[in-house]
């Protein structure tokens, strides 16, 4: 593939208010067609970072370039490449879905045929004539995404896009985002507290904590850095004794036991357990989840 300008470049983004540094030299890049996940507990500086990306907050230091345009110097050109939802999908509740989309279409100067296209993309066409005040959070989330898709932007910035959606809706939106990234080479920036969702949707993840990026990398690299064996057995104490005899590190929870081990060590362990009369109901090699990794990286602080 040829070298392309990154769709989004954040360099050394910093925001200081008074003496408090809320975001501290945050840098990352999004390539075309890439889905980037942004994870962090509340107050980590997630939303402040997003607000700086879309020009709502002026950074104290650092810069944002979208499709090569600096958002301070070329705000209009830069923003023409972006569709976004910041925090909640707040739209005009006293207007209908269609009026909302027309409102933003006028600002972008795109034609009304765009409205049908984006409404179809998020399966909202049948509710367009109703007032947004009557929508559920999930419907508003869809309308927010539809609004962001107006004008076919190169970059989508979505803050908690799964919020308020039911599992089927989450899956539908995930497929939509993957399709947009795959077929239209759209770059997508997602912040979420649903780690499983990020794991399923994103190509790359950054973990932000106390205003700094702690880790960044491809989801696959971050996850495959460690794998555990998960067992469900009838007698956890006896299984623990056998694991200890074999110098394995492990932890237990209820009728489950997790062991850190190489794949090759699995058959001998399972035989030994069977010989000792431990009944094994379930054995699985499992990647460390993003959640576990996240807790490790942030030192045990919960997400959300």
């Amino acid at each position: 593939m040829t070298e392309l300008t990154p769709t989004l470049t954040a360099s050394n983004l910093t925001k200081t208010i008074g003496h408090k540094t809320i975001v501290d030299s945050v840098s990352f890049e999004l390539q075309q067609g890439e889905i980037f996940g942004f994870l962090g507990p509340n107050g980590a500086g997630k939303t402040t970072t997003i607000r700086m990306l879309v020009g709502l907050i002026r950074p104290t230091a650092g810069s944002v370039r979208i499709c090569g345009y600096d958002i301070q110097q070329n705000f209009e050109d830069a923003m023409r490449c972006v569709g976004c939802i910041v925090e909640n999908p707040d739209l005009y509740r006293f207007m209908t879905g269609r009026e909302n989309l027309e409102h933003f279409a006028r600002m972008l100067r795109v034609s009304n045929s765009e409205i049908e296209r984006v409404a179809d993309a998020v399966s909202l066409a049948h509710r367009l004539e109703q007032r947004v005040g009557t929508y559920s959070l999930g419907m508003r989330q869809r309308l927010g995404i539809a609004q962001a898709l107006l004008g076919n932007p190169k970059l989508l910035i979505l803050d908690e896009p799964a919020n308020g959606l039911d599992p089927a809706g989450i899956r539908e939106i995930r497929e939509l985002l993957r399709r947009l990234a795959g077929e239209q080479q759209m770059s997508i920036f997602i912040s979420s507290h649903l780690l499983a969702e990020i794991e399923l949707t994103c190509d790359r993840v950054a973990i932000i904590h106390k205003g700094r990026i702690l880790r960044e990398g491809s989801v696959r690299d971050l996850i495959s850095s460690r794998r555990d064996m998960e067992l469900r057995v009838d007698d956890v104490p006896r299984a623990s004794v056998i694991a200890r005899e074999r110098n394995l590190t492990f932890r237990t929870d209820g009728d489950r036991i997790w062991l850190a081990m190489e794949e090759a060590d699995a058959p001998p362990l399972l035989s030994a357990l069977a010989e000792a009369g431990v009944k094994i109901f379930h054995a699985q090699r499992r990647a460390q989840s993003l959640e576990e990794m996240f807790l490790e990286a942030t030192g045990g602080e919960t997400v959300d």
Binding site: E76, C84, V86, E87, N88, D90, L91, F104, M107, L108
Partner: peptide
């Protein structure tokens, strides 16, 4: 108050 400024001010209009 309604939070719509976040959308209004992130469109390509100064």
């Amino acid at each position: 108050a309604e939070g719509t400024d976040k959308l209004l001010l992130t469109r390509p209009v100064r």
